[in-house]
Design a protein around this nucleic acid. Structure first.
Lengths: 133, 133
DNA sequence: CTTTTACTTTAGGTATGCCTAAATCAGGTA
DNA sequence: TACCTGATTTAGGCATACCTAAAGTAAAAG
């Protein structure tokens, strides 16, 4: 399931509003074959996370949107952390790869820490801050 | 393969020197059935990462040790980060779960950042440092 | 209106990882 | 030495996630 939700994330990001995202687009973004994409869309539809209109594309259900949003939060948090703290080049790709493997607890604590939650820790310094000195 | 290497990590940690780690022990640590463990040991042996002595247990090959060490580094880095920066309770369990999903680049940059690499960032503050104020 | 073309889906496989139930084995007990 | 017991392995399945090749579809070009 960890891999399956990446499809949701791409649909969420690509879909913008609520127009369907084509299998081809998904396949390209995820670097999978179109066949794998179709299969996954059917699986996700069976799980009630997307609506798959054959030969058209997929849109998120409310459930799917909820799942995607959670993952998107994690993705953004990771991406920011990789970029601003670790100074990684392809922070977004890396974040996309990892988002599904990060537990909610870690994602939450990381987000809080990035926002300067001092209950457990000082805010971490960002790469740009370090560069300004 | 990402899951398979966790077996290596446990063998590495449990095995200490080079005496075999029993399937039962592995199964317990990884919360898998003994049958799954046996199967995985056979798989890992086919990949040249462990030597599996039937009814005895498994020891790492040089290749296996190398892989395990890399993962162990990542595990330690993550564990430290979760404990000292994020202030997580079960930092080790969390680190064990995630170690296999973290790319070498991320692990390396994270380790460097924890050590106070200021090329890209100031050292992150630790929970204990924050608590001392 | 037919045909081409690009995209999608189906069909048939493969690899990974896991499980339960049923053998099998090794070591200690009788 | 024969047996019991606990651990291990094999057998048979199942779910997830991927692939290639072949078939099908829709929409634009002719």
């Amino acid at each position: 399931m960890a891999n399956a939700v990446r499809y949701l994330l791409v649909i969420y990001i690509e879909g913008g509003e609520n127009y369907p995202v084509s299998p081809g687009r998904l396949a390209e973004r995820l670097e999978k074959s179109p066949a794998a994409t179709t299969e996954m869309l059917q699986r996700l539809e069976a799980d009630g996370l997307v609506v798959h209109e054959p030969y058209e594309g997929a849109t998120l259900t409310d459930d799917g949107k909820e799942t995607a949003e959670e993952l998107y939060d994690t993705y953004c948090t990771l991406s920011q952390f990789f970029r601003d703290v670790l100074g990684l080049e392809d922070s977004e790709a890396e974040a996309m790869r990892m988002a599904g493997s990060v537990s909610p607890v870690v994602a939450e604590r990381l987000a809080a820490t990035l926002l300067g939650d001092t209950a457990n820790s000082e805010p971490v310094a960002t790469a740009s801050e370090a560069g300004e000195r």
